[in-house]
Write a protein that binds this DNA or RNA. Structure first.
Length: 219
DNA sequence: CCGAAGATTGCCT
DNA sequence: GGCAATCTTCGGG
């Protein structure tokens, strides 16, 4: 896989993100995403991510060019692209280089390393009866990860490389288990590309689901 | 202006 | 394993 630019702990520099998305994505595994709010801080160690290659990737939101929603993806690397989907969920990406093109890594799952109680409280409050009391399920899946961290569209465009930012990513050296790669989850086009990366054997990695067209709600 | 699908999740059978 | 919830975004008419 791509060599890790920053192995030492500490805030990831913008240069880390200013690289091809297929290098950045696997390198993010093991790194820690932290969101600080007035309620407290929650952090997760990333265990599963997906790369999206913008204009050349039919599965990317940027495939058909820039719109008001995906504008952040076309901007400077190291910023968060947060979108709302299915009428109830948020998902967060980290924008990568090279500059001028739309590349981003979707953060699909992680393991809570700080703020477990706050994360669990958000999960309970957000869903009427999320029965998953399991710690490993708190950030298992892109929408759950956002809910546990309290991420919403207010963070769209946030600079995760800025020292004072409420949303930050710190580096870590991935030791022990290796990285696996496979097809992305839930994408209708471009599903053949193995652009999903996860920490081999990690229990917090979400379950693979192929894309299924949604039936139109009956009138 | 309107219709259709969506980088998902959780509950139901 | 199947399907409903819920609404924003985007493409087409």
């Amino acid at each position: 896989m791509g060599r890790r630019l920053t192995a030492a702990p500490g805030l990831l520099p913008r240069d880390f993100f200013d690289r091809p998305v297929l290098e950045v994505a696997p390198d993010l595994l093991g790194c820690v995403l932290r969101h600080e709010t007035p309620d407290g801080a929650v952090a997760v160690r990333l265990t599963e991510v997906e790369a999206y290659a913008g204009e050349t990737d039919p599965a990317s939101h940027a495939f058909r060019g820039m719109t008001a929603r995906n504008a952040v993806m076309f901007g400077e690397p190291g910023h968060a692209y947060v979108y709302f989907t299915y009428g109830m969920h948020f998902c967060v990406n980290l924008v990568c280089g090279p500059a001028g093109v739309a590349r981003a890594v979707l953060l699909r799952a992680g393991r809570i390393t700080a703020g477990t109680a706050l994360a669990a409280e958000r999960r309970r409050a957000g869903r009427a009866a999320g029965r998953d009391g399991q710690e490993r399920d708190l950030a298992r899946g892109p929408a759950r990860l956002c809910q546990a961290l309290g991420i919403d569209r207010a963070l769209d465009g946030a600079d995760v490389c800025a020292p004072g930012s409420p949303l930050q990513v710190t580096g870590a050296t991935l030791a022990g288990p290796g990285v696996s790669a496979g097809p992305r989850v839930g994408v209708s086009h471009g599903a053949e590309e193995p652009w999903r990366f996860w920490i081999t054997g990690d229990p917090t990695v979400s379950v693979y689901r192929p894309h299924v067209p949604r039936r139109r709600a009956r009138a």
